[in-house]
């Protein structure tokens, strides 16, 4: 199910769609489908509480980009970079702000370099902790737990059409 809603934010039209999934496998598959026409230079801001399925969502994106290595949680190292064999995207940058209070550490590990790189896709877990680092044209993904298995995935992206 999907309900489009259009609202203007700082001059850019954003489109919000919502989906329901009932298992981690479904969440991953949803991400894979949505990411199949992903453009290089996209920043995806992921929000959702512990265990909502954020890393699972990133696994789906990685699959869509043809990444075959295991995408593990980057909580410990803050950022993991995956080289990608894809016609437009060179690398997937997987960031996790779970432990952070501010953005200076992400600057320290070199995130900004990738945020302004037109050949990278950057996915930021716990993006709500570093609002100043999230570009205004980022795609926002909010995952909410309905119960132990069911999740709603709400995706707000700038409408480029």
């Amino acid at each position: 199910m999907a309900y489009p809603a259009v609202r203007p934010t700082s001059g850019i039209y954003h489109m919000t769609r919502a989906y329901t999934t009932t298992s981690p496998a479904e969440t991953e598959e949803l991400a894979r489908k949505l990411a199949s026409d992903l453009r290089a230079g996209t920043v995806i801001a992921l929000e959702g509480e512990l265990g909502a399925g954020k890393t699972v969502f990133v696994k789906g994106i990685a699959k869509a980009l043809g990444i075959t290595t295991v995408v593990q949680s980057p909580t410990f190292v803050l950022m993991k970079v995956y080289e990608v064999q894809h016609h437009a995207v060179r690398r997937l940058v997987h960031v996790d702000c779970y432990r952070l209070d501010g953005s200076s550490d992400l600057r320290a590990v070199g995130l900004e370099e990738y945020l302004h790189d037109s050949t990278s896709v950057v996915v930021i877990e716990w993006a709500d902790k570093v609002p100043e680092l999230v570009p205004h044209d980022a795609t926002r993904v909010r995952i909410r737990s309905v119960d132990e298995h069911e999740r709603t995935v709400e995706i707000t992206s700038p409408d480029r059409s």
Partner: peptide, 12 residues
């Protein structure tokens, strides 16, 4: 290897 979180991360 782990498919997601490290064992120590789960403890944390």
């Amino acid at each position: 290897q782990t498919a997601d979180d490290a064992a120590g991360e789960a403890f944390d």
